[in-house]
């Protein structure tokens, strides 16, 4: 009896602690959002988004950094998505589990763990210096493309794996070539999953700072071409806060960043839910 009681005692204490852990995680999450949004939301007028920063960001808005963020993310997805989806297609449709697929998976897993500052160093020597692209949208975008590659690969591979093998068999049995089977059956069926991966990558690109500041620079001038340097919202936020340029503007930019990331994340989540519900 006594032993029994102490077993249940332990269980109650343990479960209590776990509840505390889970609840405090939620609490901290909410706290982070709340404390930044509380100060930041009042700054977010339409003008804030549509005015370019003036006086190093003390006044005006964040328009040029918004453009910079979009341009950089666009370049990253433009290069990163085809490479990532292509890799996933190769791993799933062109090869069995083999030495080469293991090497590719290992490379992808390793790349996923490389810290962004290392990507920054790499992008700086390779794109900015060696390929002479300077601090630019292109250098930054290509660096980000390398960074998001593992995410795109693993989400695409996952969703291609989930396609019933019979779809392929049917396509081949109707005289489809491999290419036709991939483009007309495999990729369309995997699209929601691939799109989720791309959304997550967009989120990551928007939030990235270390790699971007070393490869795309931090110029507040409105970009005119892919070779223009730019400042993204994250970099702008970092500079405003760290150099104490304007707390008000920092809060505003931070709130805008959070909302953006929140929106993208919710879209990805919605897709995942829909997709999973569709499957089962």
């Amino acid at each position: 009896m006594i032993i029994n009681r102490s077993r249940y005692m332990t269980q109650s204490i343990a479960k209590f602690l776990i509840w505390m852990g889970a609840l405090s995680t939620i609490a901290v999450m909410i706290l982070i959002l709340f404390q930044i949004l509380k100060e930041g939301l009042p700054v977010l007028h339409l003008r804030f988004f549509l005015d370019s920063p003036k006086n190093m960001g003390r006044e005006g808005g964040i328009f040029s950094t918004l453009i910079g963020t979009m341009a950089l993310t666009g370049v990253a997805i433009f290069f990163g998505a085809p490479l990532g989806v292509g890799t996933a297609v190769f791993l799933r449709e062109f090869t069995r589990e083999s030495k080469i697929s293991r090497v590719i998976r290992f490379g992808t897993d390793c790349l996923a763990g490389v810290p962004s500052i290392i990507f920054g160093l790499f992008g700086f020597v390779f794109f900015v210096i060696q390929l002479n692209m300077g601090w630019s949208i292109l250098s930054g975008g290509l660096t980000l493309a390398a960074m998001i590659l593992p995410t795109v690969i693993s989400t695409s591979e996952e969703s291609i794996r989930a396609i019933p093998p019979s779809y392929r068999e049917v396509s081949y049995s109707l005289g489809g070539t491999k290419w036709q089977t991939i483009t007309r059956v495999v990729l369309p069926s995997a699209l929601p999953g691939i799109f989720t991966g791309i959304l997550l990558s967009i989120g990551r690109s928007i939030g990235e700072t270390a790699a971007v500041i070393l490869t795309a620079g931090s110029s507040l001038v409105m970009p005119t071409s892919l070779f223009s340097p730019i400042r993204t919202m994250s970099v702008h936020f970092y500079i405003l806060a760290r150099e104490g340029i304007s707390m008000e503007m920092a809060y505003g930019t931070g709130a805008a960043l959070i909302l953006l990331v929140l929106m993208i994340n919710m879209m990805a989540q919605w897709l995942i839910n829909r997709y999973i519900r569709h499957r089962t």
Binding site: Y167, E169, P188, S189
Partner: peptide, 16 residues
């Protein structure tokens, strides 16, 4: 494969 068509044991409509 166009000359010799096959129907499988379970129905396999494509998702379209």
């Amino acid at each position: 494969r166009r000359r010799i068509g096959i129907v499988f044991d379970l129905p396999t409509p494509l998702p379209m």
